[in-house]
Structures are given as C-alpha cells and as structure tokens.
Amino acid sequence: MGNNYSFRRYFISLCILTFVIALITDIIFITEEMLNIHLSSKFSNTRIEKIIDFRGKWLWLTYFIAPIGLFVKIIIPASLIYMGLYLSNFKVSFNDVLRACTIAEFIFLLPIISKILWFGFVSPDYTLDDFRGFYPLSLFAMFEPDLLDKWLHYPFKTINVFEIAYWFALAGSLSLVLSIAFQEMFRIVVLYYGSYLVCWMLFVVFISLSIN
C-alpha cells in the first residue's frame, strides 16, 4: 500500500510539473502572433484563422491527454526492466519498478526547463521554428536542421545527454528502491531498455521514411 501510494505521489507530482511547464510554454512562449507569422508563409489567411481558432478551442484537451501519454512512457521501460529482472532471477514487485521508473522520468523535465530558460533569458528573439527545433545537448543540435534528412531528425534528437542521464538515473533509482547493486541495474537498463530504444528509433526512422 505504501509503495503504491509512493508511485501515485511521484506520478501526480510529475503530471503537475508537466502541466505547469506546458501551460507556461503555450501561454508565454508560443503566442498567437508567433503562430500567425509562422503559418503565413504556408497557408492562406482564412486557413490560418481556422488553425488558430482550432488550437484555441482544443488546446485544453492536450493537457488532459498528457498524463495518459506520460503513463505509457513510464509503463514501457518499467515492463521491460521488470522482464529483465525476472529473467535475471531477481524477485521484485512491479510497483517498485514502476516507482523507480517514475522517479527517473523527472530527468526529462530538464531539457524542457532549459528550453524555457534559454528562450526566456538568453535568446528572447526567436521564431516558432527556433523554439520547436531546440534540442539542447543533443546530436540534433550539432547540425543545421535543413541540411539533415527528415528521417534522421528523430534519432538525432533522441541521442542526447539527458537520455544518457536517464539511463544512469533509472539504474540509480532501481538500485535504491530494490536494494540491488548499481552495476547490476545498469546492465539490465542497457540490455533491456537500451535494446528497446534502439528498435523503437529504427521503427520511427522507417515510418518517417515511409511518410516523407
């Protein structure tokens, strides 16, 4: 019961933080004026009005869907790690694994916070493309986006310092929650979560090659 409560507590905190950051981004950083400028090179005025109207009407829905997405994002590595632990003959509870994965997930708030700080204080004159294409400390940030093939965008964005930090944080939180040696947990994270991530990146590359 205690463990369940802990998972819930971490998950709710994560959802609240994600919601606050999304709200700040949508209200302060992606303004209607900026959307207008961005869309004017692509669509007619009537269509732009419709797009902005649609956004205004339905944006709230994304805040409600976000926790579901977040839960799926946590349950996938948790299931893989649990399977890895099971196959390595560790008897642990799934709730503990879920809790450790939720704690590690906080790492992914850092790139969003650094984006807000960057455009809020360091580079306040930005366009929507600058804002959307900002992936700090990633392989993507080392290249000019226009020169990169579109199908390379996702893997180049995914390979970043925060992703590596997440692997260490996940191994660390698993080690703490389950009281198993860090090296052992890191091996399981690399083998089970790592192999999933590589396959997922390849799958997304294949899909983007097919639709672009």
Partner: peptide
C-alpha cells in the same frame, strides 16, 4: 533489429 535495418 535486423528486419528493421533491412526495411530501412
């Protein structure tokens, strides 16, 4: 992994 590589 190999199937995805071949497809790509």
């Amino acid at each position: 992994f190999l199937s995805l590589l071949v497809l790509i």
